Computed example of a mutant assay.
Amino acid sequence: MCGIVGYTGKSDCVDYLIEGLRLLEYRGYDSAGIAVISDKLLNKIEVRKEYGVLANLEESLTHGIVKGKVGIGHTRWATHGKPTQENAHPHWSQNYEVCVVHNGIIENHNELKEELTSKGIKFLSETDTEVIPHLVCTYLKTGLTVKEAFLKTLSRLEGAFAIAMIAKETPDTIYATRKGSPLIAGFKDENVFLASDFSPIVKHTREVLYLEEGDVIISNGTKSELMDIKGNPKEIKLVHEDVSNVSFGMDGYESYTLKEINEQSAILKRLIQLRLKKNTDGYNVVFDSIKTTPEIFKSIDRIYITGCGTAYHAAYIGKYYLEEFLDLPVEVILSSEFRYAKPKLNKRNLVIAVSQSGETADTLASIVEAKKKGSKVLSVVNVLHSSIDRES
């Protein structure tokens, strides 16, 4: 899991990129980097990246001022290639024509790398990401526009990814897409903000676009285009997010882990107060977002809970409470094993998906499978409008 940010607009982008990466550092902290189309160097792409925590990148920026109105950034949790400065993002094509940040895995990168290497292209890293800028640049040399080259490159990629790209040929424009990894765009006047989650964007705007699976967005701040991977246009439908009472910073804690541990009791109390509605008989528990009826729940005869990592362990807590209060059999299945375990799903089953990000690929695949079998799906996530939330 990595974090990516991007910006195009009327202001200098570096502060937003660094601030955004700080808020996304929980997604990866073995290296960090930014790429900016320079205002002063004839649209040259300037790259700064450092191994280790974000503070190392911030220190490097004090030795050489980088300024520009279009840029991308990345904080990395290594998957392909060990944590080094060479493997840190962004990655670029020859002559810095194109620069890319990426969250996810390009499953066919070995085949693509062999193809590109046979054409004389030299790779500087061990990452799967580096095939992306080289592919784009290869298509640019055939006469395609940057937009056309980006879309053609995406059609060659297999796997799950969120990508943000800038190009020297179009110095005011940012290109981005998502497939299986989260990406959000925020809009404010003639500024567009990109991020892996809402936390970097909230300070700047509440008007956001949650990119759907396979969406591509191209923007210069003034004009934005949304399309599918084949270039077919789509309507941009913004969502207004009201998160005035949410804090995305560490609030004085040394780490997000310590913050989460210490805030559990307060958050639990707030959630209970939010859902309890007083009436003449006492209190009702109300979930406004669950559009269903008591009759539907009465038809359920078995519950499955699925999640990965700590969500999987939380699912077991839920299992004990649900079995005690509902007197129904509850089975917990690790999301990565859900499809292979082949549970006997039917329309009388409820599948509960638990995911912090709402984008966990295996958990998402589990509920897609459950819906195919006619099961009802309920999600417990921290991110509204995430893929799992929308699929539930």
Results as ranks from 00 to 15, higher is better:
residue 165 M to P: 07
residue 11 S to W: 12
residue 284 N to F: 02
residue 347 K to S: 15
residue 385 H to A: 05
residue 53 V to G: 06
residue 279 N to R: 05
residue 130 E to G: 04
residue 132 I to E: 02
residue 241 E to F: 13
residue 143 G to F: 10
residue 143 G to S: 09
residue 226 L to Q: 01
residue 121 I to C: 02
residue 210 Y to T: 14
residue 278 K to W: 02
residue 162 A to H: 09
residue 170 T to Y: 10
residue 174 I to Y: 08
residue 303 I to H: 06
residue 378 L to K: 06
residue 256 Y to E: 03
residue 6 G to M: 04
residue 388 I to Q: 06
residue 98 V to P: 10
residue 329 P to L: 10
residue 116 L to A: 07
residue 12 D to Y: 11
residue 104 G to M: 05
residue 224 S to P: 08
residue 376 K to I: 09
residue 74 H to D: 05
residue 195 A to P: 11
residue 133 P to M: 04
residue 347 K to W: 07
residue 390 R to N: 13
residue 128 D to N: 02
residue 282 G to E: 00
residue 44 K to T: 14
residue 130 E to M: 02
residue 95 N to Q: 13
residue 135 L to W: 06
residue 324 E to M: 11
residue 226 L to S: 07
residue 53 V to Q: 15
residue 237 K to T: 10
residue 70 V to F: 09
residue 53 V to P: 07
residue 28 G to D: 04
residue 166 I to Q: 01
residue 253 Y to H: 15
residue 353 A to K: 01
residue 276 L to A: 11
residue 177 T to H: 01
residue 25 E to H: 10
residue 15 D to T: 14
residue 258 L to G: 02
residue 110 N to G: 01
residue 128 D to T: 09
residue 349 N to V: 05
residue 183 L to A: 09
residue 218 I to L: 09
residue 273 Q to S: 13
residue 364 L to N: 12
residue 22 R to L: 01
residue 248 F to M: 09
residue 100 V to P: 02
residue 296 I to F: 12
residue 271 L to D: 04
residue 270 R to F: 02
residue 103 N to E: 02
residue 258 L to E: 14
residue 146 V to F: 06
residue 227 M to E: 04
residue 62 T to V: 13
residue 382 N to D: 05
residue 297 F to M: 07
